[in-house]
Design a protein around this nucleic acid. Structure first.
Lengths: 213, 213, 213, 213
DNA sequence: AATGAATGAGCCTTCATTCAT
DNA sequence: TATGAATGAAGGCTCATTCAT
């Protein structure tokens, strides 16, 4: 009943406010989780009234979706895969298109470092994203949109090395490597505080190279 | 601790009631998630009064913790690593101590199958566990107690093959393989419905063997 | 999601509480109207927690429906038309089945008095019912269930006088008389404070008799 | 009064804007009711800022009052009873002063048709008016101002027929007839969709004539 | 005059938890 | 022991109204 009329801010003042809301939300959700963070709390932390909050976002979920999109844009941008180059999210430096200029080992290692870098941006909040995606297919789908792109790109990269590869099932190999790297990085960063990042990078590289070639 | 006098049931009748509560909780949480399942609902589903519920469990979290412990015991038991042989949780059949009786490939493959089997027990609920563990360190710690043991055991198994291995950093290798297998199995089962289980098992085996030897 | 489990009280204590809620609701809605009366206010006025309120009623509308049903049962009962003889609403005294024992004028006059009596019970709240019925077809339907019965009964009474009547279109006549009496009584009571009740009764009787015979 | 300085527009531009607001309000309130129509929504529908809305109207109630007044002026005008001949509301065609040029039956029938015509103008919104008038004496009073005039006029018309009438209590008779016609027309139009308009007109005429003469 | 971003009181509703019986 | 009625803090969200620009 009756369009809710969500404000789409173009003015500087408004943009700033929206950003304040986002920052507050990331801060709080990273710390206490999505479910334990209330809209009222976010508004207060952002120094904004609850009415303003709801003039920018239909509901808490809507805000969360935008947060995830921002994170993914920021993380995927350096891999040259971002959808939205004009995103209002920060963008990580260091492009990923240098992959093919190096030896195989270097290439894989570089890839792993890129994934690390991506996970190191707003780490705590990304951990919460991972959690929610696990919880509801609705949230998971938001992530998948981006992840599917990654798989495709990676498969095409592997195809370039086709003749030198010993694996046959390229699709499963891509899936496996992506899952593996993602999990190892995730676990290293989120649950071990990154202490063994170096060793993991080295061994992970070794494992993938040994598998592929 | 236990100011309110949480009942520790030893009588058959009580044990049965507790089990009914647990079963109801698993059923509901698997379906709708921890946060969307209320204590009242669990009690009703269990055919028990809410008062009774709170005479067995300090709060919902307490119940959840017990559920996680049960799952872990059930999953780890077949690997001969369970702490609590007298656990009231079900126990999966098929011991894992046959590892060294087979060829390397067979051994790894068998291990992967065991992990699959573990994840296939109360799959939906385990997915919820994974989600919550991500969310709160408190819950995560419960998992870690068990996982640390797994790493240790696995490292010692690898040690048996020491001379034939090409990896040097045994600790990191163990960690990597466990994380990798866990992640691949998890993703295959929880997010892909297990459709590519076979291919993943094969490639995963290939990757690990290529890495280790 | 998940049956809300509305409590259906059979115990004396509970029944009493439910009645307290109803009384409070009638009091407040009669005074300030349905829309300006909040559930919290009703609960407070009833000396009951808001939680208790929602354990008895799914929402405010549900409570309102019950209130209307109660009123109608109380009002229709003396006309021997109540659906629910065991209703927990009060019941007005004075049956209406004496209609045919009197002269025509007396019969009509008696009928009008009965309608007055019905409207004099919880007058202010009935005024609010009338208002809401006007506002939403959903609420109107609740009233109509009862009103339709009245029309039918009245038509059959008229049929008994068939040969002496000068009107031909019995259905429209019934409708017209019911509407007319209802409106006159309603207006006299709700908007004129009943000051001219006597004169209105007399003239209304005269009009109807002149019309029918 | 008017502390906030409510603008009384005399300029064409302003009048136009005010009218746009009124039209939007009637449209929305007719469709969704007074309570479910927000000021912000009205302003948006009118293509006017909420600020402008509040520069013309102290609050939503003020706007509503003006709407009711307009409707009454539009409805009463053809009966030559409008207070404000220069009202900015539309005016229905067809004067009512032809009453005495016809036979008694024709006169009454004509009157009924006029009332029908009045109710057929902005029917849905008038239904909402009826509802709100029932709800609050404040709103009701607005209606009464006009209705009292009607009664007076009608009484004086009846006086003209004095010698031929059989009724003695002219005041009550006027009141009764007005109430009756109003109610029958209202119900026929608002709740029966006007299907039985013809039959009701006929029978209503018959009833009133039989009563009066 | 006009705008519309901003406000915040207050509404409806849920649910973990208590406690009298 | 067991029950379940009762509680009330807290959450999500709406909307009439204000005010700086």
């Amino acid at each position: 009943m009756g369009e809710k009329g969500i404000r789409i801010p173009k003015q500087k003042r408004s943009m700033e406010k929206k950003q304040r809301i986002k920052n507050a939300a990331i801060r709080l959700m990273a710390e206490k989780g999505y479910h334990s963070t209330s809209s009222n709390e976010i508004a207060k932390e952002a120094g904004v009234s609850i009415g303003t909050f709801y003039s920018y976002y239909k509901d808490k979920k809507e805000l969360y979706k935008e947060l995830v999109a921002d994170i993914y844009n920021a993380v995927l941008a350096p891999m040259n895969m971002s959808d939205d180059p004009g995103s209002d999210a920060d963008t990580l430096s260091g492009p990923f298109d240098a992959l093919d200029k190096h030896s195989i080992e270097e290439t894989v290692y570089l890839y792993i470092q890129t994934v690390f870098k991506g996970h190191e941006y707003e780490t705590a909040f990304q951990r919460e994203i991972a959690s929610l995606s696990e919880q509801s297919d609705e949230f998971r789908e938001i992530e998948m949109v981006h992840k599917r792109k990654l798989t495709k790109t990676f498969t095409s990269i592997l195809s370039a090395y086709k003749d030198e590869l010993k694996v046959r099932d390229l699709k499963t190999a891509s899936y496996l490597i992506l899952t593996t790297v993602e999990a190892a990085v995730h676990d290293t960063l989120f649950h071990n505080g990154g202490k063994n990042k170096k060793a993991v990078s080295r061994e992970l590289t070794a494992m993938i190279v040994a598998y592929l070639f």
